[in-house]
């Protein structure tokens, strides 16, 4: 087991009362897996991601990555945020070089590596632009290139495409799937979009709120070239709908 979450609970104090963001959550993830954490808002999916990434500490339980317990963020496990987290005062290229500066890499190597990953996300021609000159989808591509350039083992993605329009989102889903299979990264991806989860994930962790916990896990047994309109796709989507109690219980009658 690569990532291991053991009976983790997280509480927030909310005006005197305690809110259980996560209660007794356990989960294990294999190396190279693409995991989607899916659920309504308030189910603790982002909290769980923050725990894995080391931004938060659990009240009870432990989180392991490899052999080591997670206590703080590390450049080996990078998070991609919904609002990109690019630095507006830096050019696209310098944004991508950020993680390499921390690694004390020399200028020439840094530039080469940054360009390689900008190429991978198809944004070499925008390298001298400022993030504010790019569309949301392009900015998120830059953030992905910045993360990949630091060569992490795991990418944590916190609703990364939540602020994008539907078509841009589908394009980025294709890209992230391709890039991550090529690069062999382990990915934990938070979303509230069922189709997105079915399209991307090897396994979908369905979560529920009050208290935040894992409701069930859906294994997506489809090849990685997925067709959003195929029967397999719809069968799995139905399964997720059912698990989230979103299917109408009564049967529909047809009159011919």
């Amino acid at each position: 087991m690569y990532i291991c979450v053991e009976d983790v609970s997280v509480n927030y104090q909310q005006g005197g009362s305690t809110f259980e963001a996560l209660k007794d959550v356990s989960l294990s993830i294999e190396r190279g897996e693409f995991i989607c954490l899916l659920g309504p808002s308030g189910c603790g999916k982002s909290t769980l991601l923050n725990l894995l990434a080391g931004f938060e500490k659990p009240a009870r339980g432990r989180v392991f990555i490899g052999e080591r317990q997670v206590t703080a963020p590390s450049p080996k496990y990078l998070t991609i945020f919904q609002n990109y987290g690019l630095f507006p005062w830096r050019s696209v290229l310098h944004n991508v070089e950020l993680g390499l500066e921390a690694k004390k890499m020399n200028r020439k190597e840094r530039r080469q590596r940054a360009l390689k990953y900008l190429e991978m996300v198809g944004l070499v021609q925008a390298k001298d632009k400022k993030p504010c000159q790019l569309s949301g989808g392009m900015q998120q591509r830059v953030a992905i290139a910045r993360a990949l350039a630091a060569e992490p083992e795991i990418l944590f993605m916190d609703e990364p495409f939540g602020a994008l329009d539907a078509i841009t989102r589908m394009k980025l889903q294709d890209d992230i799937l391709r890039i991550c299979k090529d690069e062999g990264k382990t990915i934990v991806f938070v979303t509230h979009d069922i189709e997105e989860a079915v399209f991307l994930a090897d396994r979908i962790v369905v979560m529920e709120a009050n208290p935040g916990s894992v409701q069930g896990i859906v294994k997506v047994e489809m090849p990685h070239e997925r067709d959003r309109t195929s029967d397999d796709f719809i069968v799995i989507r139905d399964k997720v709908f059912a698990m989230m109690h979103l299917k109408k219980e009564k049967t529909v009658e047809y009159y011919i």
């Binding site: 963020p73 993680g99 921390a102």
Partner: peptide, 24 residues
């Protein structure tokens, strides 16, 4: 999110101050 990014990429305190906090 800037603070989170700086921590995540492993920038030192000094690097964070002059590469992130000051320009921000």
């Amino acid at each position: 999110v800037y603070r989170k990014v700086a921590r995540n990429f492993g920038l030192s305190q000094a690097q964070t101050l002059y590469k992130v906090v000051f320009p921000a």
